[in-house]
């Protein structure tokens, strides 16, 4: 195999791998920007995956499958929002419950489909002209629609957060819900909306896994990528553009680990896979807490992240 093909194949796989992370990560960035911590990504991702797969197997319709994954993710997000925003219960425990429930539900529903090959898959859609560019063209512009969607979401979400009025409200709710409330912004509605959007996007990430990637269904198909997405949000300091770079970086590391084995190089795949988690801890140390006081304002975590909002709570 010539090095051109190798590199192209590498990049292509990296981007595909990174797309799963990117979709979930952008979803979680939006959710966390509103002040809600969602640790249920692993559960939402896998639920989206299983619904997409089942719909594809039963109807053969890919559009319906994608819609199903969005809906499933959004419903999971709704449960989380209800428990944490309306009932004001612990966001950490609710997220964990969603993960346990989601993984269980997906493995439960997917039981009959284990090993069955997919009826239809997302095809690669080459973009004319751009996909002719050597190496990069093939890698970047000959991917499935979900990859393009994920790439487009980066500028869209960035503009939404930083250049629109809605984004200003979103950030206000996440930084200081009490202030936002006193200005008449509906804190509850905002948190609900962005938690649902986050859930939907995470479900979509799952769909890409099950109908765009692997050819068949297997137990625990997400393999911890939901957790990596949680870590990615911090690594990217809640910035969609950094999230894209981070997703591809982490995707690259994961692919590298897999490919190195094929080359007979003895560097253990596992140690590579650890890197994203180690990076995240390092970033967390330097951007929050004591060191965080010196970090740039734009990079800090949303002020109210993890705390339920109660209007009549006495300060």
């Amino acid at each position: 195999m010539g090095w051109v093909e190798v590199t192209t194949g590498f990049l292509s796989a990296t981007i595909a791998m990174g797309t799963v992370l990117l979709l979930a990560c952008i979803g979680e960035i939006l959710t966390e920007k509103s002040g809600v911590l969602n640790l249920g990504l692993e559960g939402m991702m896998i639920v989206g995956a299983v619904f997409a797969f089942i719909v594809v197997q039963t109807t053969g319709n890919l559009v319906l499958a994608i819609a199903a994954s969005l809906l499933a993710g959004a419903l999971m997000g709704l449960i989380h929002a209800f428990i944490t925003v309306t009932l004001k219960a612990s966001q950490v425990v609710s997220g964990l419950a969603l993960t346990i429930f989601g993984v269980g539900l997906a493995n439960f529903l997917g039981q009959n489909y284990v090993g069955t090959v997919r009826v239809a898959s997302l095809q690669a859609i080459p973009i004319p002209l751009l996909s002719e560019i050597p190496i990069i063209g093939e890698a970047l512009f000959n991917q499935s629609i979900l990859v393009y969607v994920s790439i487009l979401l980066v500028p869209i979400s960035w503009i939404l957060i930083y250049r629109t009025r809605a984004g200003l409200k979103l950030r206000a709710v996440g930084e200081n819900p009490s202030s936002a409330d006193s200005l008449g912004i509906n804190v509850f509605a905002t948190r609900y909306i962005y938690t649902l959007i986050g859930g939907a996007l995470t479900g979509l990430a799952g769909a890409y896994l099950s109908i765009g990637f692997n050819s068949s269904w297997m137990d625990s198909i997400t393999g911890g990528q939901g957790w990596i997405a949680v870590a990615l949000v911090i690594f990217a300091t809640w910035n969609p553009i950094k999230a894209m770079l981070g997703s591809y970086l982490f995707g690259f590391i994961l692919i590298l680990g897999l490919r190195l084995q094929a080359f007979g190089i003895e560097i253990p795949e596992m140690l590579f896979t650890m890197l994203p988690y180690i990076f995240t801890i390092v970033v967390l140390i330097f951007s929050t807490g004591k060191f965080g006081k010196n970090s740039k304002i734009k990079q800090r975590e949303p002020g109210s992240l993890g705390t339920p909002y109660d209007r009549e709570a006495r300060h």
């Binding site: 009025r165 200003l168 950030r171 206000a172 930084e175 202030s179 200005l183 734009k298 002020g303």
Partner: peptide, 19 residues
């Protein structure tokens, strides 16, 4: 009830309806 991570301008105009 100011948002520390925002600028003066962002704080004043927060909550406005508009474009």
């Amino acid at each position: 009830k100011l948002i520390n991570a925002f600028t003066v301008t962002e704080n004043v105009l927060l909550g406005d309806k508009g474009s």
